[in-house]
């Protein structure tokens, strides 16, 4: 149970970081950054998550050791624990989706705001951080809340790589005591409870970012 929440929170946080960076790269004037961002989104949205998880988990089959040559090296098997593979797989996949949500948010902010930020001498990144992103948050939060809820449930896919999350544990128990339906329903109730708590958190966040936005929310 705790593992599920820890994984969902960490993967989502990382996913948002990847998403914001990718969205900003997508809208950059530099064509190389734009194409890197496009390729990332294309690759990780275009393949099933469960496949990506299996690939990360089995990375040792192609790269027995990883590291920076001459600096450090370690066995991929000991690094790619179920936890690490699940975190990587879930967050990188999430980042590809969140990037589009963040981009929609950035596009929703009036161009006059970019111009006003420029007119007081702000470079692009500062303008994004101080002026544009805070306003985009209002648009970004509802769909990201959606994705977060999706993430809580997607962690169940990590059971295929033996990450000890909620569903994996439920299965382990019913393999032992054969109470299949009971345990699946218990797992379902836990998922529901987690999602309910998250939804409350979302509406509080939305209120915070509605400052100065009038009664439109």
């Amino acid at each position: 149970m705790l593992n599920t929440i820890v994984m969902a929170v960490l993967a989502m946080a990382l996913g948002i970081v990847f998403g914001v960076i990718t969205a900003i790269m997508r809208m950059s004037a530099n064509p190389i950054l734009r194409y890197v961002a496009l390729t990332y989104t294309w690759l990780f949205r275009g393949t099933p998550l469960i496949l990506q998880l299996l690939l990360w988990f089995n990375l040792a089959l192609i790269f027995p050791t990883i590291g920076i040559p001459g600096l450090f090296e370690m066995d991929t098997v000991s690094l790619m624990t179920p936890f690490a593979a699940a975190l990587l797989g879930l967050s990188i996949n999430q980042g590809a989706y969140t990037a589009e949500v963040v981009r929609a948010g950035l596009l929703s902010v009036d161009t006059g705001q970019y111009e006003a930020a420029k007119s007081i001498g702000m470079p692009r990144l500062q303008a994004l951080r101080r002026i544009i992103l805070p306003q985009a948050m209002r648009i970004i939060i509802p769909p990201v809340g959606n994705e977060f809820i999706g993430m809580v449930k997607m962690t169940s896919l990590a059971s295929v790589i033996q990450y000890s999350e909620l569903l994996y544990n439920a299965q382990n128990i019913y393999y032992a005591n054969a109470r299949v339906m009971e345990l699946l329903i218990v797992a379902g109730i836990w998922y529901l409870a987690t999602v309910t708590v998250l939804s409350f958190g979302q509406s509080r966040l939305e209120r915070r970012f509605a400052r100065g936005a009038g009664k439109r929310s």
Binding site: G112, E115, A116, S119, G121, I131, P134, R211, G212
Partner: peptide, 18 residues
């Protein structure tokens, strides 16, 4: 740009700030 100040037709104040 620091040597110039600009005032826009549609004000463009930052709505999330006082």
């Amino acid at each position: 740009r620091l040597s110039t100040g600009m005032v826009f037709q549609r004000f463009n104040l930052f709505p999330h700030m006082t």
